[in-house]
């Protein structure tokens, strides 16, 4: 890889990780949306259903790993969209994780500690969400 204006190959790796993360999660969301819409056509016999049903605060959708797994195994389109959303949230964490290896390669201990701290906060955010809900 050509090195230009201080941009190293490792930074290109980070960019690539982000691109792949966004591409995979978007694809899952598109497929999930397609499945959801096809299921909607076959199941919505009750024509009184407006979008308001799906956006109300009482509408249930999977938002934990076991619930996502069971939704997807039940061929739920929404389950696949949720998985895509989860991967989208994890993409920046992947970026941070890649950066740890970047600093490890340079034996830069202080920055490794800083980066691990950020990663721990990101992972902790899922736990915090459950605790305050």
């Amino acid at each position: 890889m050509k090195k230009q204006h201080g941009t190293g190959i490792e930074e290109t790796i980070i960019s690539r990780a982000l691109q792949i993360g966004v591409a995979i999660s978007s694809t899952l969301i598109i497929i999930g949306l397609g499945i959801f819409l096809s299921q909607l056509k076959t199941t919505s016999n009750t024509s009184n259903q407006t979008y308001l049903h799906y956006v109300s605060t009482s509408f249930n959708f999977p938002h934990s790993i076991p619930a996502i797994v069971s939704a997807i195994s039940g061929r739920s389109g929404l389950g696949l969209i949720v998985l895509g959303c989860l991967l989208m949230i994890l993409t920046p964490a992947l970026r941070v994780a890649t950066t740890i290896f970047l600093f490890a390669g340079k034996h830069d201990k202080p920055m490794i500690k800083v980066t691990i701290t950020v990663l721990c906060i990101l992972i902790g955010s899922f736990v915090v969400g459950v605790l305050v809900s």
Binding site: I29, G32, F59, F61, H63, C85, A93, S125, V132, S133
Partner: peptide, 19 residues
């Protein structure tokens, strides 16, 4: 991502709206 993680686990990211 930090707030999205919390919102996700709290059930605040509705797939029907998010997609």
């Amino acid at each position: 991502a930090a707030s999205a993680g919390a919102y996700f686990s709290r059930g605040q990211i509705n797939p029907f709206i998010a997609a």
